[in-house]
Simulated assay, not measured.
Amino acid sequence: MPSPALTLVPDADAPSSTASVDLAARIWALPTRTLLDDLGPIADARVLLVEDVLGGAVDLTPGAYDLVHARFQLSRFGRPAEQLAALRSLVAPGGVLLVEEPDLRTWTFEPHAPATTHLIGRLAQAFSAAGGDLDAGRRLPSRLRAAGLEPRVRTHAIGLETGHPYLRLPLDLATTLAGPLADVLGHDGLDHLRRSATTELLEPRRRGTTFTLVQAWARVER
């Protein structure tokens, strides 16, 4: 059996499943689809998407899948070595492990938005306090190499024009993680920070750049 670190039922302290949904907006559908198309069709492929699996018919037999695609799992749950080992164990010989995680370094706003930038830092702290790593993409290739794999890597950061709904992602995550944030900032402090960030993001000239989506994949040989 694979390691229990493969989180099919979220840990109680982990960022909620809604946080994963917020991160995994439709904006990332095209980069993911393009990569999957470039990997080429696999006849009768057995595919597992580990994005927000809360139970159900998931085969945990070692080597059960030709492609295991894990999105934002290390950022939510941490324990990268254990999780990658568990995910790798589900890949059949010759199959592919694909992992997608965020790298926060490009997550910026124009003009500069100090309150929103501060909120992003606090969100990263909330993920870290719960055992996750909102910046997991930065170390993803080295994590896969440490697991004995030879990853290939693509990165994507998307420019957001005025009015783009994904500009609001820090506010959406702050709503999802209001409890942990209030534990650190206090309810008044969190309310003030959210109001300030909202004011910044509603400015008519507001533009931004997403975090970088790091896609790392490797063929698994036994």
Rank of each mutant, 00 (worst) to 15 (best):
A124W: 04
W107N: 01
L104W: 01
R88Q: 13
E150R: 15
R139M: 14
P80S: 08
Q125L: 13
T106L: 08
T106F: 03
L104V: 03
L134C: 05
L84K: 00
S75P: 07
R105V: 12
R105M: 09
V91G: 05
E82V: 03
I120T: 11
L104I: 01
R88W: 01
R105H: 12
L149W: 09
L149T: 08
A129H: 15
A115I: 03
P93D: 14
A92T: 11
S89H: 05
A86K: 03
G132F: 06
P102K: 03
T106H: 12
G148M: 11
L84N: 02
D103Y: 01
R152A: 15
P80K: 02
L140Y: 04
E100N: 10
P141F: 12
V96M: 03
A81T: 11
A113Y: 08
P114S: 10
A92S: 15
A146R: 13
G131F: 09
V91L: 06
G94N: 10
R105Q: 14
G137C: 10
R143I: 08
L140K: 05
P141R: 11
R88N: 00
R76G: 06
R143K: 08
E110Y: 05
Q83D: 07
R79M: 04
A136L: 05
G78V: 04
P80Q: 11
A113K: 02
E150M: 11
R138W: 14
R138Q: 15
S128R: 15
E101W: 09
E100M: 14
Q83K: 07
G137M: 02
R105C: 14
L90M: 08
A126C: 09
A124V: 06
V91H: 03
S75A: 15
R88T: 13
Q125M: 12
A130E: 07
V96R: 09
G121H: 10
E82N: 07
R139F: 06
E101P: 05
P111I: 14
P102M: 06
A124G: 15
R145Q: 14
S75F: 05
L104H: 01
A136E: 06
L149A: 06
P102N: 03
T108F: 01
T117I: 06
P151S: 11
T106Y: 03
T116Y: 07
F77Y: 15
D133L: 07
D133P: 11
A92V: 10
L134D: 00
P114H: 14
R145I: 14
V99G: 00
L87F: 07
